[in-house]
């Protein structure tokens, strides 16, 4: 680990100015992702700007019936909040499906959205990785690609997945991210917050250097959102990242889908809103066959990777099984 200096600003604006002034500085929140990467040599900042005392730890009602979650709210407190549990069950369930009790106590809401991929090559500076260094190739292609993306990828490009469970639920619920940047405050819809790799896989989000996430807003809940959940499939029963996950909200009336939201984790460089599947399902009967057809339409564009060390073609039937069984459960049937 290279030496760095440590700053603990008293207010958010100071944190932003300090960071903006130093291109090699990084914000430090819970540290659960950043410290890991410092030790691995994945990032080598000159300075850490501790934002844990400036980002706030409150969850407040918004005038429109939504909730504002300060960026400093620990993951465990967010999942335990009675309003979140009741009005946004997918959010609570998503957080609880991630990491461990200790990590959730440490991890912040803002840091969670900004955690970086768990791609093993990304985390090993001795192997080439386009996301770490644009001049290098992607080692996951032709390598251990079991956890990698099947949607939104480009030929030869980065096939990393975004690891956050919370972000998947937020994408399904159309949350808004409040950002304070060097030029002032702005709001970014969560669906536009994370990026596909495109021609710059080094960037996970649309944030610029110095942009501080200050809060996440949840819009007023809906019948579908009240009937939402998060389903995560992983190789271990707990304390493991997703192979595939789904945040699903469903409202059914008289056997017909009135409203549905589906966001997928573990399948793309960003949490993947399954808009095609949603559009296909709306107004259709809530049956397994319809669910299956809808997700098949979404997966039409999927491009699994083949690899001697384990490809990820299995994610196609896995996404299908995960989404279908979750929809079935929300529609009132057995999971």
């Amino acid at each position: 680990m290279k030496p760095f200096t440590y700053a603990r600003p008293a207010v958010a604006s100071e944190a932003v100015t300090t960071l903006a002034a130093d291109p090699d500085a990084r914000f430090l929140a819970g540290g659960t992702n950043l410290l890991d990467h410092l030790k691995l040599g994945v990032v080598e900042p000159s300075q850490l700007v501790d934002v844990s005392r400036v980002t706030g730890t409150a969850i407040e009602e918004l005038a429109d019936g939504g909730l504002r979650i300060d960026a400093g709210v620990p993951n465990s407190d967010l999942a335990a909040d009675a309003r979140v549990r009741e009005r946004y069950p997918a959010v609570a369930a998503a957080i609880l499906a991630g990491a461990s009790g200790q990590l959730r106590n440490m991890a912040s809401t803002g840091g969670n959205l900004l955690q970086r991929t768990r791609c093993a090559y990304f985390a090993d500076p001795t192997t080439p990785c386009t996301k770490r260094d644009l001049s290098q190739g992607c080692s996951a292609r032709g390598g251990w690609a079991r956890y990698h993306a099947v949607l939104g990828t480009a030929a030869d490009g980065c096939i990393a997945t975004h690891p956050s469970d919370l972000a998947v639920a937020l994408v399904a619920l159309d949350a808004q991210v409040q950002v304070l940047g060097p030029d002032g405050a702005r709001t970014i819809p969560i669906g536009e917050f994370h990026r596909l790799p495109g021609d710059d896989p080094t960037r996970d989000t649309v944030l610029a250097h110095g942009d501080l996430v200050t809060a996440v807003d949840l819009p007023a809940t809906t019948p579908a959102v009240r009937n939402s959940t998060y389903r995560k499939v992983r190789d271990r029963a707990s304390y493991a990242f997703a192979l595939v996950s789904a945040a699903v909200a469903l409202e059914v009336a008289d056997g017909t889908v009135v409203d549905v939201r589906i966001a997928l984790g573990g399948v793309a460089h960003k949490p993947w809103r399954a808009t095609t599947a949603e559009a296909t399902l709306r107004g259709r009967p809530a049956t397994d066959d319809e669910f299956r057809a809808a997700i098949a339409a979404e997966l039409d564009a999927a491009a699994p990777v083949d690899s001697p060390l384990g490809g990820n073609a299995f994610k196609i039937p896995l996404v299908t099984g995960t989404v279908v069984s979750t929809l079935r459960a929300l529609a009132g049937g057995a999971a």
């Binding site: 603990r8 659960t32 410290l35 106590n105 440490m106």
Partner: peptide, 13 residues
Amino acid sequence: GRRVLSCLTLAVA
């Protein structure tokens, strides 16, 4: 009072 991982916690913080 809360359980945390001391290996991912910076002492100065």
